[in-house]
Design a protein around this nucleic acid. Structure first.
Lengths: 148, 148
DNA sequence: CCAATATCAGCCTGACTGAAATGG
DNA sequence: CCCATTTCAGTCAGGCTGATATTG
């Protein structure tokens, strides 16, 4: 027989990763969309909150979002009043991007949703298993980020 | 201080999943592209090889590829001579899709590449850790596939 | 002259939706 | 009449590239 007793896709680690990541992304996108936000908005607000006022280029590097996308997402965040852009007096090529008070409130709101998603995502795993999983994934990520 | 000592993104399971899946997808896409193939081609050939001649609708269900995309990918596979479409005599709405001999050779070639990618992907993990990881991911996937 | 910045326009993949035509 | 099938057209998000103008 040339027919294997298993299907290969569901047993491939690359498949498992892509499928679980897809479920995860759906959960996240949906929860954020419920609040009228996208993934980029959360990532930018979180990065901005953690590293303080930055130029757009720095923001892109730290958040891992490409500059073109940073521009578009910041336009949206600025329209909603969650960030402010002002020219840097020290370097007039730059915009200094800052989180507003409304932006901090927004971030807290999104943080809650993101945390809820983590719990939904890992629901079938025990606390120890969650630590195992994040540990293994962290090592994989470190390895592949180190060797491009 | 309102600034946490960690950045939250790298510690979120959903982030770890999406990033490792991204690396994985890049590895896979690149290796397949080296042979002039895409992910859909491999998935369709593998599904076809495992479940035998099928209608396009069945193929889509089994491989998890949407019908519109099945059509496009089959067009490509048929042009390359890896699959053949013929009208089903029993139900003339259907196309029966079959793998050709060239298609089986092609699948073997792609299978090798896919296997190599798994090894590259899991390089930093020991054999036991690989089993751990696939086990945890399999449980996550089963859970989320069961509760849509 | 060169480097960095900000912006805009567009490509590609994968997942997904809707409409239309045809045959059972 | 209803339903399944096939096909095409198009949406959307994320990741990515290239060109341009401006400033240092």
């Amino acid at each position: 027989m040339h027919k294997p007793a298993f299907s290969r896709l569901p047993s491939l680690p690359s498949w498992l990763l892509s499928q679980t990541a897809l479920h995860s992304a759906r959960l996240l996108t949906d929860r954020l969309a419920d609040a009228g936000a996208r993934g980029y908005h959360y990532r930018l607000l979180a990065t901005l909150d953690e590293s303080g006022p930055s130029s757009q280029a720095d923001l892109g590097r730290r958040s891992g979002i490409h500059l073109g996308d940073v521009v578009a997402a910041l336009n949206e965040l600025e329209s909603a009043g969650f960030v402010s852009r002002s020219p840097d007096p020290a370097d007039r090529r730059r915009n200094v991007v800052q989180v507003t008070d409304a932006g901090r409130t927004r971030l807290a709101e999104l943080d809650e949703r993101v945390t809820a998603v983590q719990d939904e995502l890992l629901a079938p795993l025990s606390a120890e298993e969650r630590v195992q999983l994040t540990g293994l994934l962290t090592r994989l990520l470190a390895h592949h980020n180190a060797t491009p």
